[in-house]
Design a protein around this nucleic acid. Structure first.
Length: 557
RNA sequence: CGGGGCGUGGCGCAGCCCGGUAGCGCACCUGCUUUGGGAGCAGGGAGUCGGAGGUUCGAAUCCUCUCGCCCCGACCA
């Protein structure tokens, strides 16, 4: 591709709305343009990257025996009603009616439709296992699209679904996918972790996420360098250092107007870890008291896994449920459901006295209050790995893929049944596996850029090499560039040649911004010696070679 | 949905407080000079000031409503 005939609208200045690096660079380097919140146009360069990523996806999915299909984006409500998700999912689903008034939606995922198909076509164990996948558009009316193409309302997703005759088969399909995913992300040049994840609304059993470490990520993951334990903070069960060792008398202390842990710990001149934080939430089944250590944060998702959906209580609700003003709640003597973090199981603590302007010291679990014990605190770096006791790290990460064991959550309501060897009717056991190609691209940039621009991993770069013609009167320069362009192309490389009538500096700046891994610089200065330059985008290292040497060097890979 | 910020040529912004015929840099077009890291000079084209209503002799500027975009939070198959 010649630059003069290509559409690569680079920008010299940073667009003001872009905050994520990948977003900023994709706009500046001419990969994407925004149509509206969460809706992006992929320009030619962006589309080339997607094509390369999707090719890798297809190769690896086909490699584990999965078969590509194509599914309608527009879907009737019935399958969604059958699984209950028509009502469970709220504003996030785009809904519409067709001209006859039939309820429809735009596909945000395809469990229902894939299972609908399986229900119609799978009858015998002889037809199993099956793995079907697609690389298609999904639509979700996101509450808050953000960070460029990291969180959009319309996006391409590679989603696959496995259908097995039993649990063993599911585990095999699951492992096949995990392996394929590892190869995919490695080939795409990403640093990533496979972490335990919360199955969430997908239901079913085990689930993992593939996470690319990046400050732009929306998730946090807990990592143990020693034993390899890796989990989303939403379910990581790390063990904090014990606290509350100091024995204190069980007595009330006047603490006028000290409400927060900070204020009270300052008042008592003791560290926050010696306190109990008592938080009242309102669940669908009434008020619930959650107890965590003063230095810990309550993890809402861990709590909601136990209580179901909940929200913070208002001041009035606190008074009504506990008979005390917020800020002086203690764990003792309440009739409502109480859930406490295991960090509080031993030791002696200070908390509210359930009486305005008073706190109580020397509170002990079992002796002064009873509770259901569940890990509900947010894991912190330095807490101990549940596997081996080593202190863990926490990293921010972008979710680039996930794998779920669904079991029979979809096959039963949609009637995806088969007859086994004994003529017994059984539900198909399913798994579901997703990858966001746009997130791969964004994560690749987040992990690979410098002050000058993008540095693409080779496998997903829009071009393999960019030939830069340094403007010159000497005809030889253009001729040599043309020759290299032609021969590299014939050798099977994707070549972009900057043949624009621009100053050298402009071309160099644009080349660095666009981020093609190799640059071939053809200029009069070196050509006098019969040489051209090969520059590696990542390191900026250049070497001078004859055109023949250059061709040989970069085509032999 | 709650909180905050911003909408002025393609991009980045000033002008708004204190109303008086819309401006700067970059980009774009023409010419000359220049030519290995975003060139210089000269000339030129391009803007419903997000939209609607109102106040006023007069509104980018003041008032009301509304739409959009970004950020934080809630939310996130």
């Amino acid at each position: 591709m010649r630059f003069t005939s290509a559409f690569i609208p680079t920008m010299r200045e940073n667009p003001s709305e872009a905050t994520a690096e990948s977003h900023r660079l994709m706009l500046r380097a001419g990969y994407v343009r925004q149509l509206a919140a969460g809706l992006y146009i992929l320009l030619p360069l962006g589309q080339r990257v997607m094509t390369k990523i999707n090719r890798i996806l297809r190769e690896e999915m086909d490699g584990i025996g999965a078969q590509e299909v194509s599914m309608p984006v527009l879907q009737p409500s019935e399958p969604w009603e059958a699984t209950g998700r028509w009502h469970e999912i709220k504003e996030e689903m785009f809904r519409l009616k067709d001209r006859t008034g039939r309820e429809m939606c735009l596909g945000m995922t395809h469990e229902e439709i894939m299972t609908w198909l399986a229900a119609r076509e799978i009858r015998s164990y002889r037809q199993l296992p099956q793995m079907w996948y697609q690389i298609q558009t999904k639509l979700r009316d996101e509450a808050r699209p953000k960070s460029g193409i990291l969180r959009t309302r319309e996006f391409i997703m590679k989603d696959s679904y496995s259908f097995d005759a039993g649990q063993e088969g599911l585990l095999k399909s699951y492992e096949l996918h995990a392996g394929a995913y590892q190869r995919i992300f490695s080939r795409c040049g990403l640093k990533f972790h496979q972490v335990l994840s919360d199955p969430g609304m997908m239901g079913g059993g085990m689930a993992h996420e593939f996470m690319a470490p990046s400050p732009a990520g929306e998730d946090e993951i807990v990592l143990c360098d020693k034993c390899g334990y890796a989990a989303n903070v939403e379910l990581a069960v790390t063990l904090p250092e014990p606290a509350g060792k100091e024995e204190m008398p069980f007595e009330e202390v006047h603490t006028p107007n000290r409400r927060t842990v900070e204020e009270v710990s300052h008042f008592f001149k003791k560290k926050p870890e010696n306190f109990i934080k008592s938080i009242l939430v309102i669940s669908e089944n009434g008020p619930v008291l959650a107890l965590v250590r003063g230095d810990h944060g309550l993890h809402e998702k861990k709590l909601s896994k136990i209580t179901g959906p909940h929200r913070p209580a208002t001041k009035d609700e606190v008074r009504e449920a506990l008979g005390v003003e917020a800020g002086f709640i203690g764990p003792m003597g309440h009739k409502i459901r109480t859930i406490a973090d295991p960090a509080l199981q031993t030791g002696s603590y200070i908390s509210g006295a359930n009486k305005k302007d008073y706190h109580k010291t020397g509170i002990k679990a079992g002796e002064h209050f009873q509770a259901e014990w569940h890990d509900i605190h947010k894991a912190r770096a330095g807490e101990k790995c549940p596997g081996c006791g080593t202190p863990v790290r926490i990293e921010q990460a972008i979710e680039i893929g996930n794998i779920f064991q669904l079991g029979t959550k979809y096959s039963v309501p949609l009637g995806a049944m088969y007859l086994d060897e004994n003529g017994q009717e059984k539900p198909v056991i399913m798994g579901s596996y997703g990858i966001g190609p746009a997130r791969i691209a964004a994560a690749a940039i987040e992990q690979n850029y410098d002050k000058d621009g993008i540095i693409w991993p080779g496998a997903i770069a829009p071009f393999d090499v960019e030939v830069i013609i340094v403007p010159s009167e000497a005809a030889e320069v253009a001729q040599t560039a043309e020759r290299l362009y032609k021969e590299l192309h014939e050798a099977g490389l994707d070549v972009l040649m900057d043949d624009r009538d621009e100053r050298a500096g402009v071309k160099f700046k644009d080349a660095d911004l666009i981020g093609i891994p190799m640059q071939v610089i053809v200029g009069e200065r070196n050509l006098k010696e019969g040489l051209v330059e090969l520059k590696t985008r990542r390191t900026k290292a250049t070497e001078k070679l004859t055109p023949d040497e250059l061709i040989q060097k970069i085509t032999k890979k």
